[in-house]
Computed example of a mutant assay.
Amino acid sequence: MAMDANEIERLIKSALPDSTVEIRDLAGDGDHYAAVVVSEAFRGKTRVQQHKMVYDALQGQMGGDLHALALQTSVPES
């Protein structure tokens, strides 16, 4: 079963309420997405820690309903 882009955004924003999230469906199949997530919560964290925060927000959907997520994370520009 594919995962909807709106659901991905909802899950990320519920875990990182201050975030801005952009989701693109890369293949049109609902399984392969690209996401850009900007959040103050990432400040001081390594890229690996930032990505883990996003994957944790997806509540175990990675590898299941969501096959692939090309992820870019950053903190807001000052």
Score class of each variant (00 low, 15 high):
71 L>K: 03
66 L>R: 00
11 L>C: 05
65 D>R: 12
55 Y>T: 01
4 D>R: 11
30 G>R: 09
5 A>I: 04
69 L>T: 00
11 L>H: 02
57 A>M: 05
46 T>C: 04
46 T>H: 03
41 A>H: 02
25 D>T: 10
4 D>H: 08
53 M>Y: 01
67 H>F: 08
29 D>E: 14
45 K>P: 06
34 A>L: 05
15 A>G: 10
1 M>R: 15
4 D>K: 09
50 Q>V: 00
29 D>M: 12
45 K>H: 13
16 L>R: 02
2 A>P: 13
45 K>M: 11
19 S>R: 01
74 S>N: 10
49 Q>I: 00
37 V>M: 07
72 Q>W: 05
45 K>Q: 14
23 I>R: 03
33 Y>H: 11
18 D>K: 06
74 S>I: 04
37 V>G: 02
18 D>A: 07
1 M>I: 11
43 R>E: 12
40 E>T: 15
26 L>M: 14
43 R>I: 12
60 G>L: 04
26 L>V: 14
32 H>Y: 09
42 F>L: 06
55 Y>H: 04
38 V>K: 08
13 K>C: 13
76 P>F: 12
30 G>N: 06
70 A>N: 15
42 F>G: 02
36 V>M: 09
31 D>A: 11
6 N>E: 11
30 G>C: 13
27 A>M: 12
48 V>G: 08
78 S>T: 15
39 S>C: 08
36 V>A: 06
51 H>V: 00
34 A>C: 06
50 Q>C: 02
73 T>W: 01
3 M>Q: 10
43 R>D: 09
32 H>R: 12
13 K>S: 07
18 D>Y: 07
25 D>G: 09
8 I>K: 02
45 K>A: 15
14 S>R: 11
24 R>V: 13
78 S>R: 11
36 V>Y: 02
34 A>W: 01
2 A>W: 07
49 Q>F: 00
29 D>P: 05
15 A>L: 08
65 D>V: 06
7 E>P: 15
10 R>Q: 09
53 M>Q: 03
23 I>C: 14
41 A>Q: 04
32 H>V: 12
42 F>S: 04
58 L>F: 01
74 S>F: 05
29 D>G: 05
15 A>Q: 10
4 D>L: 09
69 L>K: 00
77 E>D: 10
77 E>H: 12
18 D>V: 05
74 S>Q: 15
54 V>A: 00
58 L>K: 00
67 H>D: 04
69 L>Y: 00
29 D>H: 07
75 V>R: 04
62 M>D: 00
72 Q>K: 07
38 V>D: 12
42 F>E: 02
33 Y>I: 06
38 V>I: 11
11 L>G: 03
56 D>E: 11
65 D>F: 08
55 Y>V: 00
